[in-house]
């Protein structure tokens, strides 16, 4: 588990470094996607701390019985972070779509999409 956590967090870091160091705007946006993938994976990782089973009650006897069952109840994954990160995935992808549309518009006058030269061009 610690290895997995390290890998997930380094994905976040790699993505962030990509946003800083990549000069092309498209690459920056892709780097942001990598970073957000890392964050999503981190949520899934946290959700699996308690177990990896899908929390669906198989018996129709209700939650009480499952709680009494003890061990089997303990191996469930936590559904809350997974549910929550779904929202973040949707928001993240819509933001990315929006940014790509903006970049498309910019690319007409700035075909290289080099962030630094675009910035110099528009900050004068």
């Amino acid at each position: 588990m610690p290895t997995l956590e390290a890998l997930v967090l380094s994905t976040v870091l790699v993505g962030f470094l990509g946003i800083v160091f990549k000069r092309n705007l498209i690459m920056k946006i892709i780097a942001m996607d990598v970073m957000s993938t890392g964050v999503i994976a981190f949520y899934v990782l946290i959700a699996s701390r308690t177990g990896v089973l899908t929390p669906i009650l198989l018996s129709h006897a209700g939650p009480k019985t499952v709680a009494q069952a003890g061990e089997s109840a303990a191996a469930y994954a936590d559904p809350v972070p997974q549910a929550v990160i779904l929202t973040a995935i949707v928001i993240g992808f819509s933001i990315q779509a929006l940014m790509l549309v903006g970049v498309m518009k910019l690319s007409r006058d700035n075909p290289t999409l080099d962030a630094q030269s675009i910035e110099e061009h528009y900050s004068s």
């Binding site: 705007l25 942001m32 993240g92 970049v103």
Partner: peptide, 18 residues
């Protein structure tokens, strides 16, 4: 929808999203 405002909006969104 001028290029300058689109660039600034992009810059804003990128900073805030990160």
């Amino acid at each position: 929808r001028t290029d300058r405002t689109i660039w600034l909006a992009l810059r804003y969104l990128m900073t805030s999203n990160t």
